[in-house]
Design a protein around this nucleic acid. Structure first.
Lengths: 332, 332
DNA sequence: CTGAAAGCGCTTACAG
DNA sequence: CTGAAAGCGCTTACAG
């Protein structure tokens, strides 16, 4: 393994100067810097992050801007993953400060972000961006801070960690088509709700079915208050040949209600919650396609760490966490 | 964070002595050692593995005894995972030497293991144990070496990393029951082959189906040369109401053959291979339940690292890597 | 713009 | 049985 000392000796200069070149210090003559960097490159020098960590006492400042949504499960799991990464790298002094703001108050997030940027000059920001444009502008103003957007992309230039809701919708459709009997149909209900995840679930679901069995879909029937009106809608639209039902939101609520009516639909859904868990356990639902949020949190925590502490940039700027298919048997 | 120096100061002794107590050195009076350990415990001292790594130049010796079986995919992926762990911890000087022996020559493995133990005095051994008793004896003779058995357990006292083939079989059954039409049956074929994985797949598969729909199973029909005789067996046993087919081995081969006969079974299997991949891609197979071997390799590499370099023992001694359900849509 | 030196938290010969 | 000291590969104030 080649060290800074090796480089210094060959070039007949001090270790300090080599370190300076490597760390992008201002106080170094251009030519010496170039000379050093060139040699480092030739010899394949790579900095030992362990030594760096030991020598660097200053803690890096990292903030994770998460959102509080109705789905408690989501941020709970995400935080679990972040904590796991934190724990794993604790001896590097790795710490992530978590800031949760309400999904319905995007300005809160923006204001807090602005404050943090000004006061703390953080090294890293992990954010589920709500006001994308404004956040993009902030990111541009602080080029020294490493930004990762979580679950919602802003643009190609910003590292992104997320899941593929669209694909999850397609997966649910794939499974559902396989469990449905020949000639039967599936009723699709949805709200006009604009939450990213549900919209993408539905789009994916429909895209997959339309590829193959367009005619099995009844709907989608949209309703703004689906949670309350679902039962009426179902009663109005139900026919003999409808065997399946799908909705990207409130599916669990809907199933519960239809259960009382002895309507035993075949159901494959998206996402996880206590309700969904129990529905699968009790065979009121066949399967669900789940985003492993803990894994996602861990992944984003690790990517931030690798960037900040190991100079790792990964190949791409996009990291997609794979969804899981859950049937009763692997409900756990 | 409390350091060895802190401990030393409080006790009015040297850092060296503290280190000695912590590292289980012989050259230390019993009382001083106890005193030190007690204080460390009280103050919640935990060694900084980064400093240790930097100070310790001697590389630890780790060997992974894998087996070459017919399934190339298996060890390829496993090795990929091990390499990934190696890469991640390279700055700690983490290296794993891989030794592959043939599954049909268990004595080869034993001999090589004996040699390595004698000549190298390794710090860690990862092994897919073939001759369990003999390997257990070796493990007992070298208490300083940390053993992990992979994929095959020896006993409760040895850390184990593996997959749950039985559960995978159950998962396949769960899926298959959901995709099968009412009143239809599934033909189950198998060899008397004693490979652990296939036997457990089958047992799991049958256990799940018998829990619920005992009568849908036709078979299992056993044949020693299933690969060649499958078609005849199927012809002999096929009836109108048989819709599904399952085998823990050669399933892909069997499907390929039945395809020519226009027998379009509904198939859910276990494991992954190029053949299975293509069958799913072309819809000759609905789904498969897969052991993520790369993940398993990475997991075992990381557990060994954590033990040797971080004194991490995990809570349990058993680490099960979860299987994945793969339909066409998440075939990748 | 450059270098000598101290220090991060540990380990480990060496001397006593 | 114990301690002073050198060293792992880096960073960074300090002096020049």
């Amino acid at each position: 393994m080649v060290t800074q000392e090796d480089i210094a000796k060959i070039l007949n200069i001090s270790r300090t100067t080599v370190a300076r070149a490597l760390n992008g210090s201002e106080n170094i003559k251009k030519e010496t810097k170039e000379k050093i960097l060139k040699l480092c490159d030739e010899l394949g020098y790579v900095k030992n992050p362990i030594s760096t960590s030991l020598a660097t006492k200053k803690q890096k400042k990292i903030f994770a801007f998460l959102i509080q949504s109705k789905n408690k499960y989501y941020s709970m799991e995400l935080i679990k993953g972040l904590k796991k990464a934190e724990k794993e790298f604790e001896f590097y002094g790795y710490k992530i400060e978590i800031i949760e703001t309400n999904i319905d108050h995007p300005l809160d997030q923006l204001n807090q972000l602005q404050n943090i940027m000004k006061e703390e000059r953080p090294d890293g920001i992990i954010i589920v961006p709500l006001l994308k444009e404004e956040i993009k502008n902030i990111q541009l103003r602080y080029p020294k801070t490493f930004f990762i957007t979580l679950d919602v992309g802003i643009d190609e230039s910003i590292t992104y960690v997320g899941v593929d809701y669209f694909k999850s919708g397609r997966m649910a459709a794939d499974i559902l088509m396989n469990v449905m009997s020949k000639g039967k149909k599936v009723l699709v209900l949805d709200t006009k709700d604009d939450r990213i995840s549900s919209e993408l679930y539905l789009k994916g679901f429909l895209s997959r079915i339309n590829e193959e069995k367009k005619d099995i879909i009844v709907g989608p029937i949209y309703d703004d208050d689906l949670k309350n009106n679902a039962l009426d809608i179902i009663k109005k639209n139900i026919t003999k040949d409808i065997e399946g039902i799908y909705s990207s939101r409130f599916l669990a609520d809907i199933i519960k209600k239809t259960k009382d009516l002895q309507l035993n639909f075949k159901v494959v859904g998206n996402g996880m919650s206590e309700q969904i868990y129990n529905l699968i356990l009790n065979k009121n639902m066949i399967a669900t396609v789940v985003e492993p949020w803990e894994e996602e949190g861990y992944a984003v925590g690790k990517i931030m760490f690798n960037y900040l502490y190991k100079n790792d940039t990964y190949n791409g700027k996009k990291y997609i966490v794979e969804s899981k298919i859950v049937f009763k048997e692997n409900l756990r």
